[in-house]
Write a protein that binds this DNA or RNA. Sequence first.
DNA 1: GCAGCTCTTGCGTAGTCGGCAAGTTAGGGC
DNA 2: GCCCTAACTTGCCGACTACGCAAGAGCTGC
Lengths: 201, 201
Amino acid sequence: MSVRRRDRQRDDTRHDLALAAFELATRHGLGGVRVPDIAAAAGVSTRTFNNYFASREAAIVWPAACHAIGVADQFRGRPADEPIGESLVESVTALYGPGAGQQLPPDWLRRFRALVAAEPALHGEYLKATAAAQEALGDAIAERIGGGQSGAFRAHVIAGMVAGAERAAVMHWMRHNDGTLADAVRTAVRQAVAGLEGGTR
Amino acid sequence: MSVRRRDRQRDDTRHDLALAAFELATRHGLGGVRVPDIAAAAGVSTRTFNNYFASREAAIVWPAACHAIGVADQFRGRPADEPIGESLVESVTALYGPGAGQQLPPDWLRRFRALVAAEPALHGEYLKATAAAQEALGDAIAERIGGGQSGAFRAHVIAGMVAGAERAAVMHWMRHNDGTLADAVRTAVRQAVAGLEGGTR
DNA sequence: GCAGCTCTTGCGTAGTCGGCAAGTTAGGGC
DNA sequence: GCCCTAACTTGCCGACTACGCAAGAGCTGC
């Protein structure tokens, strides 16, 4: 417990900065927020902000990046004998269900999506976050199916398919707000994994 | 001929800037290149550079963005009665074959990939380019399969799967340089479309 | 309590982005 | 052929950002 105290404070600071950046951006638009504003809202100096994040965009997206990385963990937590497609569907949709964002404000996910949709300057950072998550998921799948380098290749392609389908679902949902996001994602991922049911090799 | 002259000069300038940015970045690393260097190499002022591109990164990635958008065009050029999976495989791999980069230097694609792999600061811009291409491909697929809004949803999910698989193949190829990039991409896209052969609905 | 961290902060610098207003050039109407 | 208009380029300028550096503050472990 002793070693962690410092780390926890560090994480708290990062968390505060990220949330402050997000709140300010939703309120005033990304262009209406300056780094000093964010730093002040989190109670640190601008220099400290830059110690944690390279840009406003990175700060805003950071919680989403952490969130997205969770897919791989979810997948590793599924039973190993479950069909891989089902594992993937459940792993992805778990992040869109209630209670997925633990220490984040309620309704954060929805507001975050809206912000990203409204601010093209966030797209790049957001895509980087999802790409990292896809990479992690690919590794997790590779662990499950094995098969050396060619297995890893297959695994990462599957991860790419799933991530791509998820992205498409989110984009579609952001445009036409019909139904819940979780349902759209579930449908999309089901469609993506339809071709590999049964044959993991 | 009259209306276009101006536009052509404009395009030439943009092209020169993009290529200069790319060459300088490969030579000195992204961090070793300043905007004035690029502008000077293209024979314009720094202010003009900023009229064309919002950042060095955007300039470097711009040819790749144009290139990637071509997938949708390729797809539209395929016979309408061809199985959709086959159309997709051919559309994507066509961009990796010889002669794909018309007015770009030979070996550009390979060097571009290497640069992006080496410079994380380019990832965001690059992903934005591929996302735009994915969007365009989704629209093209939607035109083919029809089916109103739910058809469009399916179409964009398919585009996401294909784009994700392609991305995974490129990443894999960048790490372990085995075989040709075109082959890796072909294999990956084949895998992605395996589940939807025959059933476009 | 003390020695050694790490984190924070202020300062200074180099560089980027974009508005604005002049100067320049191409294209079209007559 | 001539001029007018619109588009493009450019220099100047200010606001902002990113980051190196060094001093200071607060934990942590002994």
